[in-house]
């Protein structure tokens, strides 16, 4: 396939070359530092990663972390869209909720995690933190999309007496996609990182965050790097999947 697409081949080769370059830099830096506890070599990180795989606990931890973040993410998306629909219709409600949006956006994640921890406990903390990361982004972008909706098509919908469900399907959703899809991608990255941070702080059982915390506690730096690599790789995969889904949806809706 790559032979038939020279541009794709070139892109793949150059990405591979960049990867090799940075692994070489990492190797060199690890050799210069010469202390595994501070900067382990890529090989030792791979060995630690293999150990995690063989131990089996990684799968349950990844699954549980993904589940927690996804629950918070989906709830945040739903709440963000619903709130935007409501505030778009009511200026009073928008005024009432505006300070909440400002507070959520301005509060440092660490402060938020510590505050929320007191109310919801270890297990639910990553869910709540992910939720709070997603809500304002989706809310703001959905609201921006709603106010940018084509007024002329709105009049058509009014004249032809479209029921809300149909209006949502043929007009509102296609109009909002170009605003909401970038927000879905950005907020997923934030939810994932903040959710894992919440797991680290709350030592949430059976989680990637707990793996990171324990590696740091027992000074298992290669393992700490391995867990971090898992977070990065999963984040990239999720972002790639969301972008793919977004492109498909935009193409389907002819945006």
């Amino acid at each position: 396939m790559l032979n038939k697409h020279p541009a794709l081949l070139k892109k793949t080769l150059s990405a591979f070359a960049v990867l090799i370059f940075w692994i070489a830099v990492w190797y060199a830096a690890a050799a210069i530092v010469g202390y595994e506890l501070i900067l382990p070599s890529p090989l030792n990180v791979i060995i630690s990663f293999g150990g995690l795989i063989r131990g089996g606990e990684i799968f349950a931890a990844v699954g549980a972390s993904l589940l927690r973040v996804m629950i918070g993410y989906i709830a945040g998306v739903a709440a963000g869209v619903i709130t935007a629909l409501l505030t778009d219709r009511s200026a009073v409600l928008r005024q009432i909720l505006a300070p909440m949006l400002t507070v959520i956006k301005s509060t440092p994640v660490a402060s938020f995690i510590m505050l929320a921890w007191m109310f919801v406990g270890n297990e639910k903390l990553p869910i709540l933190v992910s939720f709070m990361m997603v809500l304002p982004i989706i809310w703001q972008n959905t609201e921006a999309g709603l106010s940018a909706m084509d007024k002329e098509l709105s009049e058509v919908a009014e004249i032809y007496e479209l029921k809300f469900a149909k209006k949502l399907r043929i007009f509102i959703i296609p109009s909002l996609l170009s605003f909401v899809i970038p927000a879905l991608i950005t907020s997923m990255g934030l939810a994932w990182k903040a959710g894992i941070a919440a797991e680290v702080i709350s030592h949430c059982k059976n989680s990637i965050g707990n793996g990171i915390y324990e590696s740091k506690t027992y000074l298992e730096t290669p393992e700490l790097f391995a867990w971090t690599a898992i977070v990065i790789v999963l984040s990239l995969i999720i972002e790639w999947l969301l972008k793919l889904l977004g492109r498909r949806l935009m193409k389907f809706e002819r945006i």
């Binding site: 002329e152 098509l153 009049e155 058509v156 004249i159 032809y160 007496e161």
Partner: peptide, 26 residues
């Protein structure tokens, strides 16, 4: 009574095909 309007600027829904712009709206 109920009005139906043909707008001068066409005002078709971009995500619907020609025939669906009628079927879904009319």
């Amino acid at each position: 009574g109920k009005c139906s309007v043909m707008f001068q600027e066409h005002r078709l829904f971009p995500s619907l095909s020609a025939v669906d712009n009628i079927l879904e709206l009319s």
